[in-house]
Design a protein around this nucleic acid. Sequence first.
DNA 1: GTAGGGTTAG
Length: 335
Amino acid sequence: MPAATATAAVDPARVHAHLIKSSSDDRALYNKLITLYSRSSATIPDALRLFHRLPFAPTPVSWTAAVSALSSDPVAAVRLFLSMLRGPCRPTQATLSSLLKSLSLSSPPLLSAALQLHSLSLKLALSRLPFSGTALVAFYSKARHPSDALKAFDDLPHKDEVCYAAAIVGMAQNRRPTCALSLFAAMRAAGVASTVFSVSGALRAVAHLAALEQARVVHAHAIVAGLEPDLVVSTALVDAYGKSGLVSDARMVFDALLPDANLVTWNAMLSGYAQQGDSESTVKLFDEMLERKIAPDDFSFLAVLTAWSNAGLVAVFLGGTLEDCREFYHGFNGR
DNA sequence: GTAGGGTTAG
């Protein structure tokens, strides 16, 4: 996280003090400062206090920075957005993207608010711009409205790699793997570069389809495009190979990235073995995971149970909690 | 100066 570290290294209060002393009214710097406050160890109230005391009338950029500072509190963000609409500033695609993302982070995503933002963005001719358009695609995907996501995507006159990635991932997330893969093919046919985002999305779709040929094709593409070293791409590869029944291929990718593997990677490898009913390899890998001090979670235990179940080792296991699984596992292995 | 996209299960 070099970006976050770099941001944290700047003390917004010092910059702020300097601005006040030099009685500067550098708008760009003040707007940047709102963002700095909201992202540093300083708090959101600090960012908002600055926004309300700017030495100039807030610009659309100031408003967007403030709305964005409130992204963890969608209702507060929408309230601030409404005060913006009461004044002379009109929202830009940046404002809408930020708000839509904030609405999507709520669980469940705030659909009715997003529909109103969509409507507003149509009136302001913002829905076909790259950032707000992509934010719509992503929002509808997260809200489990894949056909609306596709409509928003189709509406985009200039499709770049980010909106393709959003659409591919969105379809994969909504269990429309064939659609996701057609979009991936369309992206490549259009000469739009693939990214770690679109490739990991395509691999998720491959995993759902258990399409072993496609797994190899996308893997080859990832290598050629130089995206294989990415941890998420590799993890998605482990999963896609595992789901396709090519566990030894999964293991090769897994071993190659082992020092960097995270919990998700381990779980993907575990469930690959588990799906085969290879309980020996599953348990062996699980123990290796414990030795490396990686704390298993629900996914890990589920994989072990699946392995036993698929190997016919467990007749019935109903209604268990994670704790039950833990006990069961330790009991089974005699410790 | 503000702003959009990622992996494990079901």
